[in-house]
């Protein structure tokens, strides 16, 4: 939770992933819900962890148009663990086949919001769970 009591959300995608319509929508909906939002692109997954530390965020939302999460997510999860940021909620969005959801949740992904998801569900999830996070 940021200093002013608002949940703080880091929204990222890899810089070469040009499909940003969904992530931008989430950004404006988070802002409308009163969250603090940091929107950024990364080159190496470790940068996501670095940004999460630097910005002291409660939630990381990663967007993928292709299955690059197979390569990137383990590196982000490991970085979070190494830096004792287990409390940070990680959610994914984009084009993510249903059959991959279980594998991703096993790695620690809290929820997956693919095409056509209800944005409010994400907002509610953050509102409910972020205040309970123990740092």
């Amino acid at each position: 939770m940021s200093k002013n009591g608002r949940p703080k959300v880091l929204l990222v995608k890899h810089w070469i992933d040009i499909h940003d319509r969904g992530l931008r929508l989430i950004a404006s909906r988070c802002r409308d819900a009163g969250f603090e939002v940091v929107y950024a692109s990364y080159s190496q997954p470790e940068e996501v962890v670095k940004m999460a530390i630097q910005e002291d965020v409660d939630v990381i939302g990663m967007s993928f148009f292709t299955s690059a999460y197979e390569a990137h997510l383990p590196r982000v999860m490991e970085g979070l663990k190494k830096n004792k940021l287990n409390h940070v909620m990680v959610v994914l969005g984009g084009v993510i086949p249903d059959e991959d959801h279980e594998m991703l949740k096993k790695q620690g992904v809290r929820a997956i919001f693919g095409a056509g998801s209800d944005v409010n569900q994400f907002i509610e999830l953050v509102k409910t769970e972020v205040p309970l996070q123990k740092k």
Binding site: W15, A27, V37, V38, Y39, A40, S41, Y42, S43, E47
Partner: peptide, 8 residues
């Protein structure tokens, strides 16, 4: 640059 960070 790719790492432009937008905050709002």
């Amino acid at each position: 640059e790719y790492n432009v960070m937008l905050k709002f």
